[in-house]
Design a protein around this nucleic acid. Structure first.
Length: 477
RNA sequence: GCCUCAAUAGCUCAGUUGGUUAGAGCGUCGGACUGUUAAUCCGUAGGUCCAAGGUUCGAGUCCUUGUUGAGGCGCCA
């Protein structure tokens, strides 16, 4: 009786007839009699039945939406229909009141935009508590997947002195004062006097360090925050996001594709197997919100059906050249509906990727062997001399969730490419060394963690699947 | 960075061709209610119509600039 029990545990193994002690927040107080209490341990609430004649009136007044309570009572089989068991309250203690005249949240659906502005309260809603439980689940499943398969978790650095990843604009890290930085003889900022003795940035990718580890430990993965200072204003981009980057010695591009598909499916399966209640709630939520929409704007399948469909079907695998040919024989191409040109040598645009994934194949698609001209320097050159062993995994509704490649392991080829692209060789001496001493074919990819969370939860804005989103012009909370 | 749209009560929104005192639902607050499931019923209060400037006898409504947000595009994961 003296020890608190978590609501999830209480509902899993209900000790009917026994005295119980729970704590949590009020999700609803109905009919001056029924409290729906949730302590965050799971999706489901416990119903607390109050005999209001036995409780002081001023105490019951404090039992409002999202107030925090501690309740002692007896667990009994429920007389009502919506739940199997309930607690008959004997002692109610108010741990934290909520002044509802000032509290912004309400016991009804509120817009994602509004809740985003109240990010310190939004996790108390059904939607966000489900999303963040799933975010945890996916994160845990990532480690489980790789650990079970003999991969080593590599902590790649957050601060990097390398300026050669080429993955995007970087955030500078410095202890120099903006207004009073020391200057060199030419009048430029003298980073030799900075904390690290050189210019440094927040990492945009752990891949290059991952390769170092893969060529010693065999199979590794990184899972950490990455930073892009791009002025990207979309529902799929963050300035601070988490990325999972496996890197595997001796894997070629086909092994890489197998890994990407198997890994993605594992994460989805883990959530379906372990977090069904949260997924069911999110599924219903989407269906309700789409009721007012026109049929053609609705998703073709419910959330859980979509996830199961992805699990049960192979990802489509095509080359970039095949993708171009398919696009050029498509209806929207022939009718001139595409805004961007479809031509071998030009990158696939979002509208092209969407057609391939959502119209043509209706499932995840892996596109490989892209022209080398618009891909990174480290990707392995194919025999045709025109393409590289790059791959993108495209998901319905989101687009690119995974980007990867077989890495160029041949020192001559890599060096030629580095020079061709005008990258300073001295920045990459250690990366080039990996090819000079015991080099090996190897492959890897980066999965945008939030994009995977977006897909699995069915949310539509990436800002709603990370607790505290960082985007251009916004670093609140 | 570019394009489009939006901003009115705590929230979600309506507001006619520019014309009297700006409305509704939900929430709040007050009351009723001992089997509710976003409970229900009755009542009350609640507004610098995003900001600044302009046009006009008169602006929530029209114009300009700005701010914030959303959607799309580009960059990518």
């Amino acid at each position: 009786m003296s020890k608190r029990i978590e609501i999830k545990e209480l509902l899993k193994n209900p000790p009917i007839g026994e005295a119980v002690y729970v704590k949590g927040w009020v999700r609803a107080f109905r009919s001056n009699r029924f409290i729906a209490l949730n302590d965050g341990s799971g999706f489901n609430n416990i119903q607390v039945v109050v005999d209001f004649e036995k409780q002081p009136e001023d105490l019951l007044r404090k039992v409002g939406f999202h107030a925090c309570l501690a309740i002692k009572g007896q667990l009994v089989e429920s007389e009502g229909k919506g739940q199997a068991v309930e607690i008959v309250a004997e002692e109610i203690e108010v741990l934290g009141e909520t002044d509802l005249e000032k509290y912004p949240l309400q016991a009804k659906a509120q817009s994602m935009e509004f809740l985003r502005e109240h990010a310190h309260f939004r996790m108390r809603t059904n939607t966000f508590s489900s999303v963040f439980r799933l975010r945890h689940a996916i994160s845990f499943a990532v480690h489980q997947y790789y650990h079970d398969r003999g991969y080593y978790y590599l902590h790649s650095p957050i601060i990097t002195g390398s300026d050669a990843e080429g993955a995007g604009e970087m955030f500078q890290v410095t202890t120099l004062e903006a207004n009073n930085a020391p200057k060199d003889e030419e009048g430029n900022v003298d980073y030799k006097q900075d904390f690290f003795g050189k210019a440094t940035n927040l990492t945009v990718s752990g891949q290059l360090q991952g390769e170092i580890a893969a060529l010693a430990l065999g199979k590794v993965y990184t899972f950490g925050p990455t930073f892009r200072a791009e002025n990207s204003n979309t529902s799929r981009h963050l300035a601070e996001f988490w990325m999972i980057e496996p890197e595997v010695a001796f894997n070629d591009i086909f092994d890489n594709m197998d890994l990407a598909e198997d890994f993605s499916k594992y994460l989805i399966r883990y959530c379906l197997d372990n977090y069904a209640e949260d997924l069911e709630f999110l599924d219903k939520r989407i269906q309700n919100s789409e009721k007012q929409m026109k049929a053609e704007d609705r998703r073709p399948m419910g959330l859980i059906d979509t996830l199961k469909f992805v699990l049960e079907n192979d990802f489509e695998r095509i080359t970039y050249t095949e993708a171009i040919n398919l696009l050029r024989s498509s209806k929207p191409y022939k009718k001139g509906r595409f805004k961007y040109e479809v031509e071998w040598g030009k990158d696939l645009q979002a509208e092209h990727e969407r057609w391939l994934v959502e119209k043509k194949f209706k499932k995840p698609v892996i596109v490989r062997d892209y022209p080398k001209d618009f891909k990174a320097f480290y990707m392995r050159q194919n025999e045709d001399g025109k393409t590289v062993a790059a791959m993108d995994v495209l998901f319905p509704g989101i687009g690119e969730v995974i980007g990867g490649a077989q890495r160029e392991e041949r020192h001559e080829n890599l060096l030629a490419r580095v020079n061709e692209m005008g990258i300073p060789e001295e920045e990459l001496w250690w990366y080039l060394d990996l090819r000079k001493f015991g080099g090996a074919p190897h492959s890897g990819f980066g999965m945008g963690f939030e994009r995977m969370v977006l897909f699995i939860t069915g949310m539509s804005n990436i800002r709603d699947v990370i607790p505290f989103p960082r985007t251009p012009g916004n670093a609140e909370f």
